[in-house]
Nucleic acid binder design. Sequence first.
RNA 1: GGGGCCGUAGUUCAGCGGUCAAGAAUGCCAGACUGUCGAUCUGGAGGUCGCGGGUUCAAAUCCCGUCGGCCCCGCCA
Length: 589
Amino acid sequence: MIRTHTCNELSRKNIGEKVKLCGWVHSIRDHGNLKFIDLRDRYGITQIVCSPEEVSEQIWNKLKELKNEFVISVEGFVVGRPEETINKKIDTGEIEVKLIDFVVLNESKNLPFEIEEKEKINETLRLKYRYIDMRKSGLQKNLIKRSDFLFYVREFLKKENFVEIETPILTKSTPEGARDFIVPSRLNPGKFYALPQSPQLFKQILMIGGFDRYYQIAKCFRDEDLRADRQPEFTQIDIEMSFIEEEDIISMVENLLKYAIEKTFEIKVEIPFKKISYNNAIEKYGTDTPDMRLNIEFVDLTKVFEKSEIRIFTEIIEKKGVIKGFFIKDGEKISLKNIEEYNEFVKNSGGNGIGWIRFKGEEIQSPLKKFLLEDIVSEIKNLSPYKTSSEVLLFLGGEKKWVNETLKNLIDKIKEKLIEQKEQFSFVWIVDFPLFEYNLEEKRIQSVHHPFTSPKIDDIKILEIEPLKVKSRAYDIVLNGIEIGGGSIRINKREIQEKIFKIIGLEEKIYLERFGFLLEALEYGAPPHGGIAIGLDRLLMILLGEESIRETIAFPKTQKGVCLLTDAPGDVEYNLLKENKIRIDISEK
RNA sequence: GGGGCCGUAGUUCAGCGGUCAAGAAUGCCAGACUGUCGAUCUGGAGGUCGCGGGUUCAAAUCCCGUCGGCCCCGCCA
């Protein structure tokens, strides 16, 4: 046995015991004839102490060769520390281990960056030397939390009778959705597998196969450009259930999240979460991923300004535009200089500028002051949800969609100032999505969610007449302004599924080729079913207070999709290409 | 496909046309030290200023290109 305890385990209770510890030399404090070594493993730090009169000359000399990050195994006696030298910063601070002997298990070169660096290290270095970055507490803590979280997810789902089933990684390319990663098939030259964007079709097939409750911690792959919260491969908590309706999934997910989050983190989760319809979200927040920590809703000033004599506004209204804005409760937080900034921002977004009114008790301050009659002012003030003695109203006018989007972008700009509690976690469900949207570039109707999403039952009758008015049985879950998951009740009738394919412009030949197996399966007793997928990396990013998804993934890729540790993607040997009947053709620019 | 920011000792940064044949902190190396825990003290080493080209009497500094990283738009059913 080369260790009897971890480096965070020993306490007063162990005093007098002979122990063996293993770990990395975290630091050496050398006082000449007294040396302290902090020995570190992932559990913690234990102080080793040694002086020449207590060990042989040979051991003492060997000790002098130790450097930081050497891996060693130490044998010694646990002793209590003198009262005045107790270190309250570490769990083992009441004891130390008096060295008897030690073995260097491996040496280490000087590290490219320090383990105990307080400042942020360049991410390129961190990714290249990921194994060193992992020795630091930050990434280590995140990966352990990730593991804990998944354990509680599995525990919850197991208790709820879910079956964890793996689905293939080598699968078939699907025409809708993101770009696929492809894998050549040597046994079928010229043909390719695709890596799954999600296990969508397999989980539906599992429902038809009678597994009424399925889940998987599923790797998904999408060959799209990366962002702070997007990696080409990521993990979803993928769930599907039979014999259920929207509300069953929603409440199951609420309970799951509450359980796993509260078990893993010091976070209280209040359920049920709020629900907002898609249309309402757009009207009130200008987005289908509103940040509910903000407590800011748009107010519609169109009717108020319609009666005013202010030309710039009445003109907008005549052109069917709208005037909308939002109140900021703590008006003092917004200076004139800030407003000037926002004005520039609105102009850069293609508008005329921003309108604003500052309410100070009975007084108002505004560039429009001389045009604002008293009754208009009081009507506007009445729209405030806060009615404090010091608030600011920011507003703009124009085409409705532009106004909603610009106000939302403006809020994003001001957000940092307005969020009172950063450590707050505010979930919201977005429901009643439209089933389809019109793609202007491709001039065709496409699915908002995915083509297997069921329309609302009442809307099936207008499916082919007014498809853009059809609502879907889809739901998204949003946390602090970021989409962390989404799902729907699926179509379980071949006839409707075929209609959907046709509406989104898939020819019969194409959809039979791609999805024929699903359509056929739907004819053999497909139960009503639905599910959800939760983006694990993203959810953890938010819960851990990280700015990037990469902080929750052991081996993430850079923005160009490169793994700096392994240098993937790389060249492959010519023979491998030949066996796969692949010829490289990189045309010059 | 496009926009923005960044690249200087091992690390984090400063320097942004001229006493810079580049500097701080930390780390590293050597020596001293028996109660430290961000040890302390003394001394020392350490740089293709990402790479290539240009402008200039003079470039880490300005310009162009290129490579790499980050953030964003497009894209991500």
